[in-house]
Each structure stands twice: as C-alpha cells, then as structure tokens.
Design a protein around this nucleic acid. Structure first.
Length: 416
RNA sequence: GGAGGGGUGCCUGAGCGGUUGAAAGGGAUGGUUUCGAAAACCAUUGUGGUUUAUAUCACCGUGAGUUCGAAUCUCACCCCCUCCGCCA
C-alpha cells in the first residue's frame, strides 16, 4: 500500500508508476474519494464532539437527551454514506501497486528485462548432451508419467539420488546462510485471505495463480515469502533487532494459470515444488543494500554449486505487484541452449509492511515502517535440473557438485 | 468432532453502563544518589485519523446492535487455552 499523503502530494508520479507497471487504476478517483472521505470525517467528528459533550455531563435533562438523539441519528446517516466511500477508497488503495524505483528499466514485459552480466563457465560437451528428462528417466530420478497418473500434469516424483539431492541442497543452503544471521524457519503453507492480500499477492494478476481452499477459507502458499512476511503482522520491531532475516523452507503451490502450453514437459514448471526463501525486515535506508546483499547470497550459492548463470534486472512491466525493484538469476540449461529463471529477489520497500501494519521503533523512539526484502535462496526443482544438465557425463552418469558431496557421501550418480 | 474457559496498553493483570485512553505491578526511558554499579527514590511512558492552528474524533479480538452514553449489555464471526475423542 502507498501512503495516501504521498499520493496526494505526488499524483503524477503515482500515475506514471502505475503506467510503467502496466497496472490500470484510476488515481483521480482515489483522490476524489480521499477528499470526500475527509469531508465526511470532519462533519462526523464535529457532530460526535457535540454528542459527547452532552453525554459526558451524564445529564438526565430531557431536552438535552432529545438533542443527543437527534445528533445520533444525523451521525448514523452520515456514517452510512461515509462507509460507502471508505470501502471503495480502501478497495482501490489495495489495487495500487508498489511504484518502481526511478532506476528500474522501463519495459512492457519480460522481453525487455536487462541482462546485467553472465557468470560461470558453460560446460562444453564432447558428446551429444541430453536434456534432464532423458537423463533422469534412464537413471530413475524423476518420474512425471506416474505423477500424471496420480495427480495430473505438472507434477513429478523425485526418486533415488534426486530425492537425496533435495535434502543435500537444503542442508547446504542452511549451512551457508545461517552464517549470515538468517533464522531458519519452516512456515505454514496455508494462510488466511487477509494475509495473502496484505502481502500483495492477491492482485488481479496474482489471484488466479493461487490455490484456494474454499471450505476452510485458506490459500496455499505460492512461496514461503507469504507466511514469513505475514508472521510479524501487527508487531513492532526495535531498531536494534533489524535487520530481521529469515530463511524459510516450504513447499510452494502454483496453479500456473495462463501458462498453458508453456514448459509442459517435465518439472521445470510444476504445481508443487520445494523452495528455500530469504526474507528480511530492515531499516528503510538500508533496504537497497540489503537487496544487493540478497542478490550476492544467491550468486554465492550458484557459484558454490558451479552452475553457470546470468543476472537479469527486471523491467517495470515485469515487476511483481509489491515490488519496487527486482533481479532474477537464470541458470544455464544446455539442452535448451538458454538461461532459465531459478531465483528472483525483490525490494518491496514498505509496501507490504504498511498493509501488514509491521512497524519499528527507531533511535528517536519514532515509529516507522521497515522495508521488506525477499529472495529465492534455492528453488529445488529447477536447481536440480540445472545440476543434472550441466553435470551430465558422456556415459549417462551425473557428477555431484563438490559443494554437495559431503552431504551425500557420494560423488557421482552412476549410470544404471 | 464434543464440553468448558478466555481474548484489555511493551508484558502480567484489574475493570463488568457515565471524566476509564483505561487501576496496580513489572519492564523500558530520563533524573537524584554513587568512584562506578546494584538497591532505593522521583518523573516520563499507547496508536492512528481530521485540522494552518486551537481543538477534536476513533481504537480494550473483528463486525453488527441496544443506549443520551459501552472495554463493560445483546448477537454473529475469528482466534487462543483446558479437558475428552481422533491422529502424525
């Protein structure tokens, strides 16, 4: 949520920001409602003051009571109108996206994201390299056929070494990031609609992507960002406790609505996958630094795993609803001869904390909204794909990244 | 799922129709004292809105209602706790 004061004072900037983000919203309507809202508030407050004055006396004076009754009815009428305005106002306020920073490249969609740099050495194969599905089928590591039988498309079984690899990755990431003061957490993966809304993940664009359990009025998490961010709703941090960093592990559920026909094969794009997610609440003035730190951690993990990747700066049109700036990391997939997204990290400024009413007390004891940064630590499925494809051997076996060997106790997934 | 109990400020906890935005204690902050500290004592200590300002309004889980007046009464909902059942 944006600060209404900011919108009042910078209507053009807000309009431009929405436009850059390809979000259609009538800012003038919001400003009009805001004005009306305040007019009503003033009137109502004035009448209430008069009513309070009579009541405070505790007076049993008949004429006074009659007057108070009249005031009460007047207030009731005004409140009815006020409520209508207030509801529309609030609903629209929730529809305003976070504004992109001025230095975010302007673009309409992902095709206009900006590649910042490429890192790592792409493997050179002296044999005909295969895609991960072919490799894993032979090694009995991933079974999408049976998953389709049991659950439908876009599901998969991880088996044998692939299953073990998941836990190796998890341990590896925990070990690496706990050194950076991340608090490990396994959050609930179902959350209330108001929490999902407060996180900014029920926007028009996002809502179809969420699984909703009607019977229990709960959403399935699409990322641990959601339950972790909402964890401190309504709370106040002390400045000395910031940054508050979490490293969450959770299963993530995504409907993949609107991606029909895209990546239909395999487990690159599935309804359910496991992911580790970083989340930080920090002082506003340190948010950009924290965001860079998150990117650095993501790169550190990719470098340790020796997976070639590139860093992409997300343009305004591709930026998620609550984000002010974002980077993706894309891993090199030899079979596709291109990079595919494995990480993204967002600076969501105070957009979410405002909606969640999460505050912090600064040195002067003043309350403010901390900023929220989130980022993928590791998305298991896609990282597995990247490892398998980049580490494949001529004989059909797969080498294990050195960083993971100590967690597995073997250095190679042998051909069968 | 059944039966009870409860949601009040940073925390514990009183209030059960009329200066109660809220007792008391703890904590925190500032001060006195001290070489310093502890202890003791004194003081301060909610948030949000409207308004140029004075001022004023709202908030005791959420939402409706009764009343001139509600933290206090009524209803619905949410959440938490205890016991029983079930269960990893």
């Amino acid at each position: 949520m944006l600060d209404i004061k900011f919108i009042r004072e910078n209507p053009e900037k807000v309009k431009q920001g929405c436009q850059k983000k390809q979000v259609k919203i009538d800012i003038d309507r919001i400003l009009l409602l805001d004005k009306k809202r305040r007019e009503f508030l003033q009137k109502i407050d004035f009448l209430r003051a008069a009513q309070n004055k009579i009541s405070e006396g505790g007076g049993r004076d008949k004429t006074q009571i009659k007057k108070a009754k009249e005031l009460k009815n007047q207030i009731k009428e005004l409140e009815k109108e006020f409520k209508k305005i207030d509801e529309e106002f609030n609903a629209l306020m929730l529809q305003i996206p976070n504004l992109p920073f001025d230095d975010v490249p302007i673009g309409k969609d992902e095709s206009e994201n900006k590649v910042l740099r490429e890192e790592g050495k792409k493997p050179k194969f002296n044999f005909k390299n295969k895609d991960y599905l072919e490799i894993t089928e032979k090694l009995d590591l991933i079974d999408v056929k049976r998953a389709a039988k049991v659950s439908g498309t876009r599901f998969g079984y991880l088996k044998n070494e692939a299953a073990l690899l998941e836990f190796a990755l998890i341990n590896f990431v925990f070990d690496t990031l706990i050194k950076q003061k991340f608090i490990p957490v396994i959050p609930p993966v179902m959350l209330k609609p108001e929490m999902m809304e407060a996180m900014g993940h029920l926007s028009e664009r996002d809502k179809p992507e969420r699984y909703f359990i009607e019977k229990d009025n709960l959403y399935l998490a699409g990322t641990a960002e959601q339950p972790i961010g909402a964890m401190h709703a309504g709370e106040i941090f002390e400045e000395k406790d910031l940054p508050k960093r979490y490293l969450g592990f959770s299963t993530c559920f995504r409907r993949e609505a609107g991606s029909y026909g895209k990546d239909t094969k395999g487990i690159l794009r599935v309804h359910q996958f496991d992911k580790m997610e970083m989340f930080s609440f920090c002082e506003p003035e340190k948010a950009k630094k924290e965001h860079q730190f998150f990117l650095k951690m993501e790169e550190k993990l990719m470098q340790a795993l020796k997976i070639p990747y590139r860093v992409v700066q997300i343009c305004t049109g591709d930026l998620a609803f609550p984000g002010a700036a974002a980077y993706d990391i894309e891993a090199w997939l030899p079979s596709q001869n291109r990079y595919r997204e494995t990480h993204s990290t967002f600076n969501d400024t105070d957009f979410q904390t405002r909606r969640l009413n999460i505050r912090y007390r600064d040195k002067d004891k003043k309350l403010g909204f901390p900023h929220a940064i989130n980022g993928t630590a590791i998305a298991i499925g896609r990282t597995l794909i990247a490892i398998i494809e980049n580490y494949q051997q001529k004989d059909g076996s797969i080498k294990v990244p050195v960083a993971l060997q100590k967690y597995l106790g073997f250095k190679i997934i042998p051909k069968k």
